[in-house]
Structures are given as C-alpha cells and as structure tokens.
Write a protein that binds this DNA or RNA. Sequence first.
RNA 1: GGGACGUUAGCUCAGUUGGUUAGAGCAGAGGACUCAUAAUCCUUUGGUCGAAGGUUCAAGUCCUUCACGUCCUACCA
Length: 708
Amino acid sequence: MPRKLFITTALPYANAPFHLGHFMEYIQADIWVRFQRLQGHKVHFICADDAHGAPIMLNAEKQGLTPEKLVEKVTSERVGDLSKFNLSFDHWYSTHSPENVALLHDIYKKLKANKLIISREIEQFYDPVKGMFLADRYIKGICPKCGAKDQYGDSCEVCGAVYAPTDLKSPYSAITGAKPVLKKSEHFFFKLSDKRSAKFLNEWVANTPLQSEVKNKLAEWLGDGGKNLNDWDISRDAPYFGIELPDAPGKYFYVWMDAPVGYLASLKNYFESGKAKLNGEARSFDEFLADDEVEQYHFIGKDIIYFHTLFWPAMLHFAGRKVPNNVFVHGFIGFSGEKMSKSRGTGVSPQAYLKLGLNPEWLRYYIAAKLNDRVEDLDFNPDDFVARVNSDLIGKYVNIASRAAGFISKKFEGKLAKPQLPPDIAKEFAAAAPEIATCYDGREFGKAIRKIMALADLANQYVDANKPWELAKNEDRQSELHTVCSTCISMFRDLTVYLAPVLPQLAANAGEMFNFNAGDWKALTKLLPAGHEIKPYKHLMTRIDPKQMDALLEPALEATKEAKASAKADSKSSEHAEAANSEFALVPPETPKPVVIQPINETISIDDFGRIDLRVAKILDAELVVEADKLLKLTLDLGIETRTVFAGIRSAYNPKDLVGRLTVTVANLAPRKMRFGESQGMVLAAGDGTGIYLLSADSGAVPGMRIK
RNA sequence: GGGACGUUAGCUCAGUUGGUUAGAGCAGAGGACUCAUAAUCCUUUGGUCGAAGGUUCAAGUCCUUCACGUCCUACCA
C-alpha cells in the first residue's frame, strides 16, 4: 500500500541568500523524497519562506524598503537556485500569507480555549529613541565579568560568560546607540509548564522514533516530571513584522510561533491552488490532514530541535491537529578551515558554485556520500570533493557504460544480447536492492553509496575478467563479446536506478541514452532483454577540474571586507557569516565551464528585428552599485546623448576594465526604474548562466552607429 | 556555569548487543592491461582507535577524569 507522505524542510529565513547549509538539508530531504517516490509512495514535498521577525523588519528599514519588499527581493534572487540543484519541491510559499494568518489564529484560539494561553507582565529593555523593545541580541555593553567592550546582551564572546542583559555595564541599543530603559509590557505565553503539556510530550517522545541524540536532548528538557519546561513567550510588541494577535491589538506573534504553522499554510496553498490535485491528491487540505494514514516528517538542523520537538507538537496537539510522525535532524556543514588560509576566505557559496558552471549533481553526490541518519556535522573538503566525484562517479560508475557501450554500437548495431551475470555477481546484485532501499529509507545515504560503489567495483572486475577487448579481436568469440557487454549495460542500468534519487539528471540522461526507465525500481529484478536497443554512448558527466575548485574558493579581496562587516552586523552565528561572505564573492571571468546551448527561438520577420534599435555605445564610466551584488552602473556615450544603464555583469567584469570599451546597446528599450536609479537601456552580452561575455564592436565603429 | 554529540590510517569514513591478528574508498608504492573521460584490474605500505586511569578472562566498543571540536542553555530567526 503506497504511503502518503507530507514532507517539509525548515523554512529559510528571508533575510539572506542561501548558503551551503540550506542546500545540504534540501538535498538530504530531496534524496529521501525521490527515493520514496521511486517506491511508489505519494509524497507532498513542501517548503516556504520564513518572512517575519525583528531582523527582517530592521534590515528592511536599513535598506529603505518595506519588509514585504525586502522579503520579495531576497526570495526572488534565490528562487532559481532551487531548481538548479534539481530539488523536487512540490510547493514553495511564504509565512507572510493569508493562509498562515488564518491557521495561526485558529490554532491560537483553540489553545486559548484549552486554557493554555496566559498573559503576564514582563520587564524588558526598551529603546526610547527607536520606540521598541530590544531582544538580547540588540543590546550591547561591557561584559560584567571580564570588562570586554561591545558584548551582546546574553553572553560574552571574549570570556564566554553568560548573563542577563540587565547585568551588562553601560548597556546601549545596538540599533540606535541609545541607553535602553527598563519598561513593562504585557506578554502572552503558551503554557508549556502545564501538566498536560509534559504528559503529552512525554507520550509523543516515547511513541516517536526520534534519533537518539534528539531523545537525549528531550530527556533533559522533559526530565523531572516536566519541571524544566517553562512557559513560552509567544508575543512581541509593535513595531514588529509579523501576524497580529486576534484579540490583542498591537501584540504580534513571535516569529517562531508562526514559522512552523507556515508548513501547514504552504500545504494549504498547495491544495487550494490545485497543485495537490495534479499530484494525485483529490481530497481537501483538511481531509488530507485529518487522515491518520498521512505521515508528516520535518527535516531540520540540530539548532532548531527545541522548536520542532516541544512547541510544535504541543501546539498542534492541543489545537486538535495531527502531530509530526517524526523529525529528522541533521548536523551542520562545515568547511575544512584548517587547510585554507584566512586571506582566502572561508566557505563555499552555492551561488558561486552554480555561476562557475560546476555540476549540481557533483554536490548532491558528495553530500549524499557523507550523510547518515545521525545528528552529525559534516565537512566540505575540496580535495575530498574532487577525489570522490572523479573516482567514484566517473572512474567507477560512468566508466562501466563507457567501456561497454562502444562495442554494442560498433559491432552489434546498438542491440543487446541476453545478459548473463555470473552467479556470484548476480547474488550480490540481488541482495543489494533491499539493502540499499533500507539505507535510503533510513537516511543512511553514505552507506547506500558505499554499497552501490561496491557493486560498481564488481562490474569493473567483471569487465577485466572477461577482457572484451581481446574477445573483439577474435572472430569466433563475437557472441561472447556481445554477452559480456550486454551484461555490463544491464549492471549499469541497475546502478543507475540505485543512484537515481541522488543523481536524477544523470539517471534520466543515462536512461534516455540506453532506453530504460531510471525510475523503475521494480525492474531491478529483471535483466535487460535480448534485442534491447541503446543509442551510441555520449559522455554522461565530466570530471571536476581542480582549477574549478580553486576558482570556487577564491573570493575577491574587496568582497571579503565588505562581507565581514555585514556578517558582523547581521548575526553572531558563524553559519550566517559564511553566507554573507559568499554573497559578495566576485568570480574570476576566465574559468573553464561546460556550456549549455539552448534551442533556437521561434522565427521572426525582418520587421520584428527592425523594431529593435541597436547602437554602438562607448562606456564612459563604470562603477559598482553599493547594495547590489550583481549590478554595475554604466555611463554610455550613444553619440547624441549619454545614458545610464544598470547591467547585471558585476560577476564577470571589473568596472575599471570596462571604461573606454565599445559595446552594443538596445537604445529604444523602455526605461526601467530600479532601486538604485533609472536604467535607460540594456547592454548586450552572451551568457547562459555560467558566464557573461559582453559584446564589442570592431575598432572604427563610432558611438551612436546603428546596428543592422 | 550546566548539558548533548563527536575525536579510528595522509584524507573521507565503516566498525553490529564488548570476543580471535582494527576494516573500506581515495591518496602513496609495485605490477598488469588498453575497451574506457590518464579510466580499470591485481598486489602492497600506513593506525599503541584524542589522553590518562578503571571494570572485565576479553574494550575502538562499558565507567571516570581531562583535552580539543560543534551545538543547545528558553523570550535568540
């Protein structure tokens, strides 16, 4: 019976671009989801942007935007990254949505009816200049223990002391610098201290197959009969970017209250937009969630265990809703810091990774090969990355197809003979299917990969033992040759199916080339039939050139400075600092990269073309646009006038190298207002997402000349 | 300060409820081969399993302490 699965990944905070940690989680979840789909289960794979909270509000203000605009800007910039890593989300929405308001209000009212919401007055630091209450992270001062300056309100980064903000000497607001004053305010709390909460949570933990690390953690929180459970402050005072309490004007839900509800809001929108129906789920959102058979799983990082294993199940349970069947926790992705000098920066930017044309499936494979079902950190090691991909994927796996397919095409018109696996190898392959399935299902991806690669080794050994290159020279042994190569292709088919959750694109390409369905797990019990036709072999995947890694790891100097400043301002977390670092990374233009040629567009008439007024332009000036990481501001001489044009070419050109160059511009393009000014045209450049190459006019051309 | 988890060959990792000479891949060395994207195959060199104690007939595996790393410690998304 097919399982019905509702799967989420943690909602990314809409304050910054994605970093590698996001993609590790998405890739982990995506592999699991794809595996479940291959087993014939019905999966609804959902995520959303986490759009609320004080940091977004303040950041937006700093940039002169409304919070909505900031969120829109951040999320629109990163939307393409998701599809490029072949992530198969069924729906992506936002917590800033009417569905979320409705669901949150409903949950809140039910909790209140259950007498689990109380209010009480608390005293907190308040910024009189800004007119808002300050969370610990927005208060700085002198550490009461060691006297270090500019320490945050909760702990000292110099001596490690932990204290309350009120203990700080000479406290000041990190936002305005004003001296904060203590002020009282009414806050609303979710009564986690209620006996019912502890009782329910203990039951939930006992009945949920959580990871042992998570259980330990929970035992700590739930120990002593729940005495360690304190009430959870779920309200914030205005100004706050969030969802207002239905019965307390000026009070907003703390973002961590509305964020997990966003899982449901996104699911609801997915249902109401008709996408669920297209995905084979005809029932309504409410009916779906009321079904006990539906399994709900959340993939999260270890830093947010607290919210997902205490508040979230309790909220759902006492609002009369389905609770999660499990929460899958992973560690963080680190970087081999030791080996890299600090001047070269740290971390790997997924944006730069894509821009450099590195194959997304390399990363998927590497991450899969290192993941297990535990709450363990993993390390991104560039040398390891190159070695792993090149030797496992190219040397072992792809090689099998490459060394057998040539004979089939050249000698046997692309048709297979009946494959014949030697008994010992057949046994191994037969045993592998359930083992690998268990690994995937249990999120032991590293183990699955190891098993698959062991099978690939067997296939290569088989080829060596049977020496097809010798058989080929002997006219009497052609049918042996035919069988050996056909057997190879059949083994390759099996390996491809096994790898399909990790490498969906490669698997699809291989399936297309060799005429099999890489998504057919059930076919694994049968060999490919005699007469099966394959197309001629083409390279399925290129090796990683270590030079590409060098380019990936080389951030621009000026960018590093900028990033460090902004990282500090944004967050204390190293994870965030890493993201900010990469955000500004410039990419050297001369990097080898595979080019993807897009199909030609539909035919147009000469008149259509004539409507576009192309002119030669001379670049008089070029400068960086502060706060835009992709744009350069160009001043162009068009002969009769000068124009200002913003061009998204910062990743490929240094401003000073452009000054004086002749290029081509669209002169009659409607001007477009941008945040930084009006762009009055467009310069032409070649590019497919992996690089940008500005067009030039030959010497002798004069600014203003028409191009026809 | 309290707590959780981790520390196994140069690198990345396996090591089941404690049980014989601690395993694999990559890298290194030697050889074979040439079908294949300098891929593959065979052989082989590397470890007092973070440190020190302890329990046991027997410990990488259990206990204690210490060191290092990551994270949590509630109004911090």
